[in-house]
């Protein structure tokens, strides 16, 4: 039954080609020696050299990385708490809470950006790095919550209950029983939050201030002026970083999954 027909293979091949051809073109042209983006001037690392001499671009990259690290960490903590609340607790206003957790997943960025900016202005909160950090935390904690919650749903609750029945305090139960069981989801939530923060242009552009030009804002303003080979080089580096991170993450989860499966098997034997 599990065999692919020719149509299925064609659909997959075309789909993947559609996804990867533009990226391949971008990467190849980043090694183009010619200043004209459309003319092939032989392989060269020239634009990478130019890139590393572009102080503004490097500064933006540093800002974006710091921002992603801070907001992803905060979002991971808050998102994991939100997932625990949704999966384990009964409380008043649960419906409103669930609504607020899921809404940012689909809310158009332009609305989130505008409303956060107006909040910051109303409360005289300085626009800039920390405003973006708060905005990104709010946006990405929802993604963490959804990932962790779906993992929590598969965790056997009797383990937690056994620990607590034996007198283990809640915090310790969480740290020694629950967290080890859900950490692959927490880790992938962190990675997704990190990637989303690095990626965001619209919300950051609303709440940014002087000295907080993130990498997407910088790239956007360059792209508006036209195609530049240097931008191809930035994009290629970003793709390489993301791809490496993803491969490492999937290897890690696979290893922990295998260990857990072995553990479960051992317990059954």
């Amino acid at each position: 039954m599990r065999r692919l027909s020719t149509i299925n293979i064609a659909a997959l091949a075309l789909g993947l080609a559609f996804l990867y051809l533009p990226i391949a073109v971008l990467v190849i042209y980043s090694f183009n020696g010619s200043r004209l983006v459309t003319l092939w001037g032989g392989w060269s690392l020239r634009w990478y050299g130019e890139l590393f001499r572009d102080a503004a671009m490097l500064e933006s990259a540093a800002i974006s990385l710091r921002l992603a690290l801070i907001s992803a960490s905060a979002a991971t903590v808050l998102g994991t708490l939100a997932a625990l609340a949704l999966a384990r607790e009964r409380f008043h206003g649960r419906l409103l809470f669930a609504g607020m957790v899921y809404a940012p997943l689909v809310m158009p960025e332009i609305i989130t950006g505008l409303s956060l900016l107006l909040l910051f202005v109303a409360f005289n909160f300085e626009r800039g790095f920390w405003a973006i950090a708060v905005a990104h935390t709010t946006l990405t904690l929802s993604f963490v919550a959804v990932i962790v919650q779906s993992r929590l749903a598969t965790v056997d609750r009797s383990l937690e209950e056994a620990a607590m029945d034996l007198g283990c305090p809640p915090l310790r139960t969480f740290l020694t029983v629950t967290l080890p069981l859900i950490w692959p989801a927490v880790a992938s939530g962190f990675l997704l939050a990190f990637a989303l923060s690095l990626d965001d242009l619209v919300i950051a552009n609303f709440v940014t201030g002087p000295g907080a030009t993130t990498l997407p804002i910088r790239i956007y303003s360059e792209v508006r002026l036209g195609v530049k080979p240097e931008i191809n080089a930035v994009c290629t580096i970003m793709i390489a970083v993301v791809a490496t991170g993803l491969v490492i993450a999937s290897l890690l989860t696979k290893r922990s999954q295998a260990r857990q499966d072995r553990g479960a098997l051992g317990a059954r034997l």
Binding site: P22, I23, L201, I219
Partner: peptide
Amino acid sequence: APRRWQAILVLLVVLPFWTSFLIRVYAWIN
């Protein structure tokens, strides 16, 4: 698709989503 291929194929579909959408738009401008 056969089970052992599924994980890697799904990863291939998701992978571009992890790169910045600005990069993806820019790739098409090229």
